[in-house]
Design a protein around this nucleic acid. Structure first.
Lengths: 152, 152
DNA sequence: TTTTTAGTTCTTTTCAGGCAGAACTAAAAA
DNA sequence: TTTTTAGTTCTGCCTGAAAAGAACTAAAAA
């Protein structure tokens, strides 16, 4: 594809890339996801990505598969065309958000188990922990409400 | 200190440690924070920590300083005693929570800047992004309310 | 003044993650 | 049947993070 990136777009890919690195993505994955969010074409092929970001095939392949696993991107195919057209799923942020909220459950379960095994001698501390786990559960519930009621 | 950990406590330190590694802490930091959450004594010294977790002095020192920087732990001193007594700040989770909510602002700012530079040709996609940034700001506000109104 | 305490800093080792480049593969096209 | 396409997988390198252990340090105690 001839749809070259402007300097501003390259700059934004880096800013957004850095932020997403901070959220646990590898540099390449972070930039692939950023590219799909910033490029004028929202459906890019393997080679579009490879060329735009000047990555090797292996880095491109690994980054794409990583993002697919994380369900942060998806792809479409076109009849009579073997290529896959990748797009970010940032538009479907609701699911991602729900996943991250639900991810707190595992954390809270461990804290609750810690509580059941704590010495009874540290009442104040235990009460604070209890308060925390209760808040977490409440926070999860309310967050889910916020999302499901959003602009509905 | 002679306050030995039970096997169950050791097990909990590992579970909680793993979860906290997943949240970006190094193995040693994750376990130090877990220890302070699980041990019967909530105020532990450098050497208590070192011995309980079988860490080297350098690993202990670095983990502690790391957690202090992240403000996930704090310490007290006692008159006529040069040691520092470290404790987890999980009890003061409200601040940590507020920090993480506020941390979303930087992310949202970049997404908003991306939006201002996006081609106008992808209306649906842009609208979804717009919706997302609006929700993020709303979510931040509401989350802060949830915390400040909690059991008040 | 010397020694002990409570750490910190420096040096070295180990290890995993991330990437490039090359070799490979399965399906489709020629 | 051979070649091209659209990737994937393998090999090897390089770097940075994490930790151990030893050397060091500043303040207090003896």
């Amino acid at each position: 594809m001839e749809n070259k990136l402007t300097n501003k777009q390259k700059e934004l890919i880096e800013s957004f890339g850095v932020i997403q690195e901070g959220m646990g993505l590898s540099p390449a994955s972070a930039r692939v996801d950023a590219l799909l969010t910033i490029a004028d074409t929202t459906e890019l092929t393997f080679d579009d990505i490879r060329e735009s970001l000047e990555l090797s095939k292996s880095a491109t392949s690994n980054a794409i598969n990583n993002l697919l696993m994380l369900r942060r991107i998806g792809y479409k195919t076109k009849p009579g065309d073997r290529k896959r057209y990748f797009h970010t799923k940032l538009g479907q942020w609701k699911n991602t958000f729900l996943d991250s909220i639900n991810g707190l459950t595992a954390y809270n379960e461990v804290v609750k188990e810690i509580l059941t095994h704590r010495t009874k001698k540290t009442k104040e501390f235990n009460d604070q922990l209890k308060d925390f786990t209760e808040f977490l559960a409440y926070y999860q519930e309310e967050s889910i409400k916020l999302i499901t009621n959003w602009k509905k």
